[in-house]
């Protein structure tokens, strides 16, 4: 069973946010609009964050794309009182929207703040539902549940089905999340972290590799490579 992981090379990431948009279109997260965005309720599973340090003219801006870190030891799953969020058999942390009671414990427990709460049933202006992805995994979530990045599990299913339909074994290279596919700087890598021949295995052991808040002991499966 592959241990799915992602490597993001910050030297090749130009913060173009195409990952953010690809994620939205693939996973049917609703546009929040001015009012809700102002209340920090926008749901973007894969946001790019900017951190500005220093004083003019010596300014450092750190731009970090932040999907769910898909921890091997996910604190969100430990605190869920109803076991609605769990690591599935592919090692991907997902939410069962039927079980979720909306207590938001997981949102508090997640050190990366990548769990998003549906304060109301998602809304699209008239006509704009037409472009929603019809895959059942990403059906718009109801009011009162938490949602988050799933490494596009629907694409994993599609890849497995396609391999089966073509009568060949499923290969780790068959599957990549939407953000990886669309990355304009080719900065994202995806694959099996346990396969020594995979690019993600090798890059995750690069001297440039680091993980966010490594000291929390969450063992994220998303690695970053330092810029420069």
């Amino acid at each position: 069973m592959p241990r799915w992981g992602m490597v993001i090379d910050l030297d090749k990431c130009f913060a173009c946010q195409s990952c953010t948009a690809a994620c939205r279109m693939e996973n049917n997260t609703p546009p929040a609009g001015p009012d809700q965005t102002g209340r920090d309720r926008a749901i973007l599973w894969n946001e790019v964050l900017a951190f500005v340090h220093g004083e003019y003219p010596k300014v450092e801006v750190l731009l970090v794309p932040r999907p769910c870190q898909q921890c091997d030891k996910p604190p969100c799953t430990y605190v869920c009182p109803v076991k609605a969020t769990y690591k599935n058999e592919d090692g991907i942390v997902v939410v069962d929207y039927q079980r979720c009671i909306g207590c938001r414990m997981c949102a508090v427990a997640c050190p990366y703040q990548v769990r998003y709460f549906n304060w109301y049933a998602p809304e699209w202006p008239a006509g704009m539902r037409e472009h929603l992805n019809p895959d059942p995994e990403v059906a718009p979530r109801p009011k009162g549940v938490i949602e988050k990045c799933t490494f596009c599990i629907q694409r994993l299913r599609h890849a497995k089905e396609k391999a089966a339909a073509e009568g060949r074994p499923f290969n780790a290279a068959d599957y990549q999340p939407a953000c990886v596919q669309t990355c304009t700087g080719h900065a994202r890598y995806f694959g099996d972290l346990d396969d020594p021949n995979s690019l993600v295995y090798q890059l995750s052991r690069s001297p440039r590799a680091f993980r966010l808040l490594e000291e929390m002991g969450t063992e994220p499966k998303v690695y970053y490579l330092k810029q420069g």
Binding site: S18, A22, R24, M25, A178, Q181, T182, T184
Partner: peptide, 24 residues
């Protein structure tokens, strides 16, 4: 219905990627 825009892998300009405007 068009549900997802992706970059065409065989196009010499973008080689499979697509920016956020194209996605949106």
């Amino acid at each position: 219905r068009a549900v997802k825009v992706e970059g065409s892998a065989i196009h010499p300009v973008n080689q499979g990627v697509c920016c956020l405007r194209g996605q949106a």
